[in-house]
Design a protein around this nucleic acid. Structure first.
Length: 205
DNA sequence: CGGAAGATCCACT
DNA sequence: GTGGATCTTCCGA
C-alpha cells in the first residue's frame, strides 16, 4: 500500500481559489517508466474562468488548445507556452466553467535524481531551481501535451493527500506574468507557503 | 494569411 | 534586474 493516496475528483469540484489554497502541502505524483517522482506543492495560482481576463477561458474563449479546460474538476489541463515550455493545471469546478489551478512550484520528495536528469541540460545552483516554476515542474516530471485531459486521481499523474498548509502559513499575492489582464492582474490569487525556499521568483512580498 | 502575443526560463551584469 | 530565446496559437483582415 502506497503512502500516496490520490485525492478524489470531488476535491476539485469547488471554486478555483479554494482548491488552490487546499492544494498546498499535497503531493504531485508522476509515474514514469515504473519510477515514482513526487513533488510537495508549495505554490499555486487560481484562474477563475470566464470573468477572469488572465484566464484562457476568459469571455468563454474555447479553442482546440484549451478544450480540456472545460472538463469537470479533477482533470489536467496542459498547454505549451512561449513555444518552449509546458504548464500544468488542475481543472476545478463544474464542467464548462473554465476554472483551474496552475501548479507553480514544488519541493522534491521522491525521485529527485530522475528529476535532475530530466533537467540535466541546465544548471541548478539552488535547490529551489529544480521545480520552482510552472515550466520547471513539467520538465522535472516529464509532463507534456500527451497528459492534457488526463484524470488526476490515477497514474500516471495524480495528486495525493498530504498535510495541508495552515491558513496562517499561506501567503496570497498577485499572479505572475499576467500584466496584460487589467484589473484582474491585481487580484491576489497566487498562493504560496510562507517563506518556503522552493517558491518561484519573484518572491511574494 | 500575417502579425503579434504569450499563466516562462536562463545566463549574465 | 534585464534581455534574448523560440515557436505555437489565435485573431483580425
Amino acid at each position: 500500500m502506497s503512502r500516496f493516496r490520490p485525492l478524489p475528483r470531488s476535491f476539485y469540484r469547488r471554486p478555483a481559489e479554494t482548491v488552490a489554497r487546499d492544494l498546498l502541502g499535497r503531493y504531485l505524483v508522476r509515474e514514469l517508466d515504473g519510477e515514482r517522482l513526487v513533488l510537495r506543492l508549495v505554490e499555486t495560482e487560481a484562474y477563475l474562468g470566464e470573468p477572469d481576463r488572465a484566464s484562457h477561458a476568459w469571455a468563454g474563449r474555447r479553442t482546440p488548445r484549451n478544450e480540456s479546460l472545460y472538463l469537470p474538476g479533477g482533470y489536467a489541463y496542459v498547454y505549451m507556452i512561449y513555444g518552449m515550455h509546458f504548464c500544468l493545471n488542475a481543472v476545478t469546478g463544474e464542467a464548462d466553467a473554465g476554472g483551474a489551478v496552475l501548479l507553480r512550484a514544488g519541493e522534491p520528495v521522491e525521485g529527485e535524481e530522475r528529476m535532475r536528469e530530466n533537467r540535466s541540460w541546465v544548471r541548478i545552483p539552488r535547490p529551489g531551481d529544480l521545480a520552482g516554476g510552472p515550466g520547471k515542474i513539467c520538465q522535472a516530471l516529464a509532463i507534456g501535451r500527451e497528459l492534457d485531459g488526463a484524470p488526476l486521481d490515477q497514474p500516471p499523474l495524480y495528486i495525493a493527500k498530504g498535510e495541508p498548509v495552515a491558513a496562517e502559513e499561506i501567503m496570497a499575492s498577485p499572479r505572475i506574468g499576467v500584466d496584460y489582464a487589467g484589473e484582474a492582474a491585481l487580484w491576489p490569487l497566487r498562493f504560496s507557503e510562507r517563506g518556503h525556499p522552493h517558491v518561484s521568483r519573484p518572491r511574494p512580498s
